Deep mutational scan, measured.
Amino acid sequence: MAAGGDHGSPDSYRSPLASRYASPEMCFVFSDRYKFRTWRQLWLWLAEAEQTLGLPITDEQIQEMKSNLENIDFKMAAEEEKRLRHDVMAHVHTFGHCCPKAAGIIHLGATSCYVGDNTDLIILRNALDLLLPKLARVISRLADFAKERASLPTLGFTHFQPAQLTTVGKRCCLWIQDLCMDLQNLKRVRDDLRFRGVKGTTGTQASFLQLFEGDDHKVEQLDKMVTEKAGFKRAFIITGQTYTRKVDIEVLSVLASLGASVHKICTDIRLLANLKEMEEPFEKQQIGSSAMPYKRNPMRSERCCSLARHLMTLVMDPLQTASVQWFERTLDDSANRRICLAEAFLTADTILNTLQNISEGLVVYPKVIERRIRQELPFMATENIIMAMVKAGGSRQDCHEKIRVLSQQAASVVKQEGGDNDLIERIQVDAYFSPIHSQLDHLLDPSSFTGRASQQVQRFLEEEVYPLLKPYESVMKVKAELCL
């Protein structure tokens, strides 16, 4: 049975990233139509530049190519590739079939990587351009969430054990800070992308030097003109047959890092959902379990974690691919890159769409948070109580021993009897502590235990987050809708 299948058929496997999760716009960027249309555009740009620099290419040939950029006979191309065992030459023939007058000058002087690699770089750039505003929107939604809850005390956790208090907004800023680093890295790697350009079979530009009869300047002009037509500021000066596969490492490393950030955020949300302090959106008709109707599973956060793990592992592909590119190139890269580049971007696209949807509907339960604080705060307040007693004339050592005994009794009630923490009640009825009984409410005010959390939130948002989001103001209103 021949390899390949009808990918629109229910009898043929289709990647869930495309069929179930990723956005239509990201799927289109990695589609065959987008790819092969870009090949034709690159052939047109090459012909236009070659004509401008004096090669015998007519206006009629150029116009014929322009008129057929979208006229792609995919069936013919597939048949040609089956016959020739070469995808680029299959599309040269297919393009030439609908451009008979231009057929002889299509791909003039070029090698397969002229269309293959340059198209990949265009796709990487455009895919990054799709991700950047999506990530900015996630940051914006979380920034709104953090600002609104900047002063809401909550129990902090280290080692997932109760620690000092923080605020809900401050905790959210930990998430935002990681995503801001990801946004900066995505922008950097996007701006650092260079075009492969017009380089020939081993990167020496020998074929173009021959076409222009040894004119170095025209060869350099050709490279520059096509690079500018493709919208790049610069091209690699040095290439082998391909652009260095280190570029793929750079791009997928940034995406993998984004995956790590999203995994951490969504894990926190899942843990908070278990504590009943916070939940992701839950639709009115949504079913959490087929057997347990009360369940409210954090399905979206779980999906993000599941896909983020996949995204983090994909960076190993370009690392290994770059390491086995012998001399000017081997074909070890080809099949692998067809999979890992598309999957990385479709996965990143999915987790950003999902995280935006989550961040637009996060639900906080202040009463649950308050109750958990009441359970733990008495123990945390013991040092403040000791200091207040010393100020009232008591002995630190005597007070410490009193607190120690009462704390152990209260802990026994919590752990052995399943009761509430009654340390404060014990202190309130103990005559030894009568000098500070009137101060206990103040000493137990949760806001006095959150330090500068709310001020940190305000400063972080104003100095770091809002300036970073400013270039994306025009796209901030787009909502994230999930079908599944």
Rank of each mutant, 00 (worst) to 15 (best):
G116S: 13
L440V: 08
T201S: 04
A150G: 10
L271M: 09
R338M: 03
L130D: 06
T166I: 07
V315L: 14
R452E: 07
R196P: 00
S290Q: 05
Q408I: 05
H310A: 10
L444M: 12
S9K: 11
W45C: 06
C113Q: 11
A381W: 03
R459V: 11
S9Q: 11
F433S: 04
A78M: 10
P298V: 03
S257T: 08
Q41S: 12
P435Y: 07
R188M: 07
G4Q: 15
Q210H: 05
G116V: 14
Q439T: 07
L331H: 01
L193G: 07
L124R: 04
D73N: 09
A150V: 06
C180Q: 08
S306R: 01
S290F: 03
Q320R: 06
T166R: 03
L55Y: 07
P24A: 09
M26W: 01
R338C: 05
V138E: 08
L155N: 01
T347L: 12
Q456C: 06
A110D: 08
L469M: 09
T354Q: 12
G203S: 01
V247S: 10
Q409P: 02
L17D: 02
P471L: 15
H7K: 14
R459M: 12
D182Q: 01
K224G: 09
P467V: 13
C180W: 02
E302N: 07
C304A: 14
D332P: 03
D398Q: 13
C173N: 06
E383S: 04
I358C: 15
N336P: 04
K284W: 13
T267A: 11
K187F: 08
V368E: 06
R194P: 12
E360G: 09
Q285W: 13
A127F: 05
T201E: 03
E328S: 02
V115D: 01
L142E: 05
P467H: 03
F208Y: 07
P318H: 03
N336L: 11
T38M: 09
S261A: 11
L314E: 05
F449E: 03
E60L: 12
C99S: 12
C98H: 12
A308S: 12
F379Q: 07
T227C: 13
G5H: 05
F236S: 08
H263K: 02
E481I: 09
I424T: 11
E80A: 14
F74Q: 13
P293H: 09
F195M: 14
W175S: 03
S447D: 12
R188K: 08
S438C: 13
E481D: 13
C483F: 09
R83S: 12
V254A: 12
V219K: 03
N353E: 14
Q416Y: 14
F212Q: 04
S257L: 06
S23D: 14
M389S: 04
A18D: 15
D422A: 06
D178Y: 07
A163S: 12
L179T: 08
Q320H: 11
G393T: 05
G54A: 09
I386A: 03
G5K: 15
C399S: 12
K233I: 11
H93F: 08
E220H: 10
I385A: 04
V219W: 05
G393W: 05
K229C: 06
A78E: 13
F327K: 06
I351S: 04
S359G: 12
S323C: 07
C173P: 00
M389I: 10
Q286Y: 03
P467I: 14
Q210F: 03
D333V: 02
W45M: 09
Y365T: 04
F195D: 00
K415G: 04
N126L: 07
P446E: 03
D333K: 00
R196Y: 09
V115N: 01
S9F: 15
L362I: 12
A335R: 04
G8K: 15
R300Y: 09
E328G: 04
E250A: 11
R149F: 12
S359H: 12
L319T: 00
K479E: 15
D248H: 00
F433R: 03
V478T: 13
M26Q: 03
R309K: 05
S261K: 01
A273G: 15
D192P: 00
K246L: 04
K295R: 02
K402I: 08
Y114L: 04
G231H: 09
R149K: 11
Y13M: 13
Y466C: 13
R303Q: 06
P162A: 05
N297Y: 01
H217L: 09
P318S: 09
G197P: 00
L377C: 03
E220D: 10
S67L: 13
V429G: 14
K470S: 14
Q408V: 08
A392R: 11
K367C: 07
R338L: 02
I123F: 04
D59N: 13
D182P: 07
L484F: 15
Q184Y: 11
G200R: 00
R14A: 14
N357P: 03
V457T: 12
F28D: 09
G231F: 04
V465Y: 06
K75T: 15
A411T: 13
S434G: 12
E360Y: 05
R85F: 10
S9M: 14
I339H: 12
L252K: 05
K101S: 08
A411R: 05
G288K: 00
A103K: 13
R426Q: 06
C173A: 11
L193K: 05
F157S: 08
D32L: 14
R245L: 03
T227H: 12
L42W: 02
I373V: 11
I123E: 06
V475L: 14
Q63T: 11
D422G: 06
I386D: 02
D216K: 08
R149P: 01
L423A: 05
R245V: 01
F145L: 05
T154Y: 03
D73F: 09
F208I: 09
L258S: 06
G288L: 02
K246Y: 05
S447F: 09
N71H: 12
F157A: 11
R329P: 00
N118R: 00
M278Q: 02
T202H: 02
Y114F: 10
V138M: 15
G240D: 01
A2G: 07
F282K: 08
